[in-house]
Design a binder for these strands. Sequence first.
RNA 1: GCCCGGAUGGCGAAACGGCAGACGCACAGGACUUAAAAUCCUGGGCUCCGGAAGGAGCGUGCGGGUUCGAAUCCCGCUCCGGGCACCA
Length: 866
Amino acid sequence: MRPHVSTPAASPAFVPMSYPFDRIEPKWQRYWEKHGTFRTMEDPTKPKFYVLDMFPYPSGSGLHIGHPEGYTATDIVARYMRMRGYCVLHPMGWDAFGLPTERYSMTTGIHPRVATAENVATFKRQLAMLGFSYDWSREINTTDPRYYRWTQWMFRLIYNSWYDHEQQRARPIEELPIPADVQDAEAYRDAHRLAYMALVPVNWCEELGTVLANEEVDEWRQKGYTVERRPMRQWMVRITAYAERLLADLELVEWPASTKEMQRNWIGKSEGAEITFPIIGSEASVTVFTTRPDTLFGATYLVLAPEHRLIEQITTPNCSSAVAAYVAEAQRKTDLERTELSREKTGVFTGAYAFNPATGAEIPVWIADYVLPHYGTGAIMAVPAHDQRDFEFATAYGLPVEIVVRPRDGTLPEPLTEAFVADGIACNSTNAELSLDGLPTAEAKERIIAWLEQRRIGRRTVRYKLRDWLFSRQRYWGEPIPIIHFEDGTRRVLDEDELPLELPEVSEFKPTGTGDSVLATVPEWMNVLDPKTGKRGHYETNTMPQWAGSCWYYLRFCDPHNDACFADPDRLRYWLGTDSQRGGVDLYVGGAEHAVLHLLYARFWHKLLYDYGYVPTKEPFAKLFHQGLILGEDGRKMSKSLGNVINPDDIVRDYGADALRLFEMFLGPLEATKPWSSKGIEGIKRFLDRVWRMYTNPDGTLSSAIVNIPPTREQARLLHQTIKKVRHDIESLSLNTAIAQMMIFANEMSRMAQRPYQVMEQFVLVLAPFAPHLAEELWQLLGHTESLAYEPFPDWDEELLREEEVEIVVQINSKVRSKLMVPVTASAEELRHHALSSPDIERHLQGKTIKNIIAVPGKLVNILVE
RNA sequence: GCCCGGAUGGCGAAACGGCAGACGCACAGGACUUAAAAUCCUGGGCUCCGGAAGGAGCGUGCGGGUUCGAAUCCCGCUCCGGGCACCA
């Protein structure tokens, strides 16, 4: 008779062998919620730590498997820092304005507010399911009028500011000095505001029915949309005023080198000079920008961009038809065609000549589309010997090439086959007043700039590639720009007490197709009787770009419910600190795709607020980390079409949240791109099951192997090694190796018949930031009645780590020949002695002459022989 | 073209200039089981010699260098990923 044979599923004795995550995880999530375990504490006597995720755009497809990667890393840090006694701010919110939702609404007719609410609910459920320790009482949503009221308030601040380049800061527009000769003071002010309207060539996307920021163009092109240049009257934000500070202050932050480099490249600082060339027989002169003023003697012609405003004035009659044709052709080309298709240099002669102020030579003025209208002055001096583009153009049109720089050593072939663009020694550069000959490039630049400035024909100049931020979008689902345009052509920004300017209700979300947003079709938006001025007008029909809301959300988290200001200064000072402590968000984790866009805009926005004293630090994010992409199991980027998408819901259902959290961290270095592995997560599950069995009897009670005995020396060492390694690894975000160390602990400890209570108790705390549900359950099993969230994180005792003996490698001619156990305290001299008296070594040394012995205590002995 | 990263077993990866491959996956052998699953134990970079214990050599993309000693530092390449790109 075998009375008790039954299927595993039916036998309770089998169930506890596997960790019952489906019971434990919801239990502790409910507990945390009910007890407000993760409500943020603000205790001025305690150190603080602000750890932030880039808040997500709540898309319709729910959480992607990549989201929990960064979120788990920050959650581990947040939980760890709480246990270290810090007050931790770890919030979450929604960057919910955006085009995908609006496009969804266009096709379904469902209001974007409704769609957003549904998406947020899904995201929130999924985040809760993963057990992240967010303080949900601080949840924010950029589409909430109580939030975007302050986004509008900040736009108002930008609008009401000008940039004082002398003081290097933004100041109120009322303080702008108006020169005496200015007729229209209001127009002058408008021209200096940090938010201004301008007719600019914008990136228009017909399919989207909106314009895009320069920074956004590539992304949409990659998705197959066409983006073309079109002049439109748009809102611009003068981010260029901050170019130098955005560049210089990168020194203040601890960010990945590559991200800093990308920002530097985007800002694109060039130092050089502006030089003015008089046009012969004309009042006009052409000013060029060059980074190589030292090559002025080699400037054999000028080139204007086809858009240059002097073209009509200087073109001679016999050239005018050819010039007109060329300019028209250039206008027809899109930016893309101009940059990619026209590798062959083309151009046209204007008939005009200019004086080279250094040589006195008459040099021809050309037009070519390889000169860009929006960089520098839209005109260049061409030095074909020392600029590859000029060289190609000169070769194509038979223009002269004059060598004025030679290599430091060696000579240049003549005629040149390519431009010599490197620094070198100036030559052929002498006139009656000046000689650069023999000077290295750097000195030659200084000398000629001094001469140009003295002669008042040029000056030292700094240029940036960064352009002003195109700030309006022809969309409904965005923050309204709080401006009223009046019938008389004037406008005003809304006052603080008129904010928020809320989006009107509409039922149709398609753009009008005329370059206006849907807002232009809303009667109450377009017919406004302004109570403050009594004038008639309409609200601005454009809305802000999606980036606006994310420029300051990390500030709102510090004080999310404040209706009197965007955040209380004292609370900002508490959570951001000050520059003297390297202030800002202490740890910011998010994808590298925001390296230029969001991170540049947010830094700009923050600096403007800093200029007014609204924020206490120069920089918003002290330390930044990019989590790497998780690829599909096939090593390719996850996508629906490839069918390699992993859904977090499925993983949590099958393995539990703790397993998903641990596995994503164990996959590899946080910053690395790495493929998903469905087998790999089984290994993590095995580890968690092993931990569970280490603490529990099959009936689910505390394991009878856990007993109140003092730990052995080895057990104590193992525990303390683990504590030390895990602490160091969390602090450096090397979470994969922290988990490896915990696995070593579990492998060793689970083998032991008796496990000291004290050791097992400490290990639960070490595990807690990684697998919080399991840890809480084990903590309770160990007899505790409260959450471990604020238990002090264990510290290690260096004394306990010390080994009595250590293995020393003995090498002969750098090859390992033997290993010895010696006391850790053994000196170099003692090591030599031990090594030489070892039988293995003696055998190897037979008949050889010792030349030298290198002994490194605690490591090795290397015997060098003949 | 320019600027950043990166390259280590069958796979994901470890490694203050000091025993390359921790930890995990996959695999192989064994224990338990009627069997399977689960669990536990054992094994392994490659090549060669040896019946075995063991021994010899070669190994971190390629070629040099520095060093007693290099995956690690330096120089020159190759390939892969990312960014920028007619920016004067």
